[in-house]
C-alpha cells in the first residue's frame, strides 16, 4: 500500500504492489504489459508517480478489477490484524 503527500499535490493511494504480489506477477512482467520502464512500476507502487487516467485504467484492466480496487483517495484498510 503506497501513498505520498506532495507539496500541494493530492494523495492517491494504490494497491498495485499488493495485487502484483498476490498474483505472483513480477515487476518486469507488469512493466512489459503496461509499456512502462521497469523502474516506473516501483515509482507507481511507492506513489512517487501517479499514473495518467488512461494508464490507471489499464492497470485496473490488467488485474481485472474495478479502478477503485487499485486506487483510492483514502488509505486502504489494512488486511488481517
Amino acid at each position: 500500500m503506497a501513498e505520498r503527500a506532495s507539496a500541494g499535490g493530492e494523495v492517491v493511494h494504490n494497491r498495485i504492489a499488493m495485487l502484483r504480489a498476490e498474483r505472483r506477477i513480477s515487476r518486469r512482467d507488469l512493466a512489459e504489459a503496461l509499456d512502462v520502464h521497469y523502474q516506473t512500476v516501483g515509482y507507481l507502487e511507492r506513489g512517487e508517480y501517479s499514473p495518467s487516467l488512461h494508464l490507471a485504467l489499464r492497470i485496473a484492466e490488467y488485474f481485472e478489477v474495478p479502478l477503485e480496487v487499485v486506487f483510492s483517495l483514502r488509505e486502504f484498510p489494512r488486511l488481517g490484524t
Binding site: S6, E10, D35, T40, Y49, S50, P51, S52, L55
Partner: peptide
C-alpha cells in the same frame, strides 16, 4: 511504438504510456 511520458503538475508527478 509506445513511449513513456513523465511530467509533474502542482507538485505531483505523473506517468503515462
Amino acid at each position: 511504438a509506445r513511449a513513456e511520458v513523465r511530467w509533474s503538475r502542482d507538485g505531483q508527478r505523473f506517468v503515462h504510456a
